[in-house]
Amino acid sequence: MTRLGIMFTPSLPPESLPTVARAADEHLDDLWVWEDCFKQSGLASAAVALARTDRLRVGIGLMPAPLRAVALTAMEVATLARLFPGRFVPGVGHGVQSWMGQAGVRVESPLTLLREYAVALRQLLAGEEVSVQGRYVQLDGVKLDWPPDPAPLLMSGGQGPKTLALAGKVADGILLAAGVSEDDLERSLRSALAERPADLPAPEVVHALIVATGDGAERRLAAEYAMWDVEAAPGRGVAGDAEAVAAAVRALSARGATTVALQPTTYLDAEGVAALVEFAGREVRPLLA
């Protein structure tokens, strides 16, 4: 069955995370945190969510590679993966280029950086000693004292066929950008699988679905589309009752999503998101069985 999760978006303050995480631990499979500049740390948020829950899987989508030295990222990921085995899913991506420019870390070739970074990170998490002199990643005999066993899944993704093709080559799973339609999902998967090595298993595919329920749901979903500057399209969002949400999740699963993370509309506070989580667990999940 498709995994069902919730997105903890940075429109909520960090101190509201435990409320949402505890609700997700009771009702859903996953919680995914964002690392948008200049809002909340993905790793710190993941650590809090993991520490406040017992069974929930917590993912990060996505840590911007330019902001983080790969050796430090490996140390932090390994620590969480060892403390919470099987429950932590890190992810790396380009980062929004305008934000990378603001932070003074924008690079000339984001694809080259992400390729070098993801390869080195996977090697370090596998316990290997890594020496590399790349265009952006330089390591000299770096080896973790405490690598995780097994290494966690590493997600990557974003937008654009070149980025998705790279993610398919170097990552275990694909995290799609927010606001992706069913048709976009299929196109993204074709790009991601085009050059995927034959010895790698099929990737996990995480799709964010904007959800609005209750009175005024259609209006709130339309406002969310306007904020994201996207048009309404199947798979991008859904407004309605449990059957409507379940139908949207089933349709995405049929197109290749292995995990659907519900993305709350920005008007909700922490209690509202927790209520959405409970609704999804009690009313939507039974319809997916």
Rank of each mutant, 00 (worst) to 15 (best):
L193G: 11
P64F: 05
E129C: 07
G214T: 04
G59H: 09
Q159K: 14
V130C: 03
L121H: 10
A289I: 01
V273Q: 07
W146M: 11
G179D: 04
L185Y: 10
M63I: 13
V92K: 01
L176G: 04
L62F: 02
A167C: 00
G157M: 04
R285C: 07
R285A: 15
L12V: 10
V48C: 09
A202W: 07
L276K: 06
R57A: 12
D54Q: 14
G281N: 03
V70H: 04
G281I: 03
P203A: 09
V130M: 04
Q133C: 05
C37V: 10
A65Y: 14
G272F: 09
R106M: 12
D241Q: 03
Q263A: 13
H94V: 11
Q138G: 08
S16C: 11
R22D: 05
K169C: 10
I6W: 05
A233P: 11
V245D: 06
T9L: 13
A23T: 07
V273H: 07
A222N: 13
R68S: 05
A208H: 14
V238S: 11
P148M: 09
L288F: 05
G157S: 03
L185H: 11
L164F: 02
D29N: 12
V48P: 03
D149V: 12
V105P: 02
I60M: 02
D183H: 12
M7F: 14
V58Q: 02
A254G: 12
A23P: 09
R219M: 09
A151D: 05
V107T: 06
A151Q: 08
V20C: 10
S16Q: 13
G168H: 02
G141A: 03
P14Y: 10
M75R: 15
L28K: 02
A239I: 01
R190N: 12
Q133T: 11
G158I: 06
D30C: 10
V20Q: 09
T53I: 01
P152K: 06
F279D: 00
L12G: 08
D25L: 00
F84W: 14
L185M: 08
A226Y: 09
E283T: 03
A65R: 10
A71H: 13
W34P: 00
G272N: 10
D241H: 04
E204Y: 09
A44G: 14
V137W: 06
V206L: 15
V58G: 02
A118D: 05
A254M: 09
D269C: 11
G134S: 06
P201I: 05
G59F: 08
L28Y: 04
E224N: 06
L62D: 00
E243L: 12
E278Q: 15
D54M: 00
A223L: 13
E26K: 03
D149Q: 15
D36H: 15
P203W: 08
L185D: 05
G101E: 15
L252C: 01
M155P: 01
I6A: 05
F279L: 02
P147S: 06
P203S: 10
M63D: 01
R285N: 04
M100Q: 15
D145P: 08
A212Y: 07
G216P: 12
Y136T: 00
V142E: 07
S188R: 08
A103M: 15
V277P: 02
M75K: 13
A23S: 14
S191L: 02
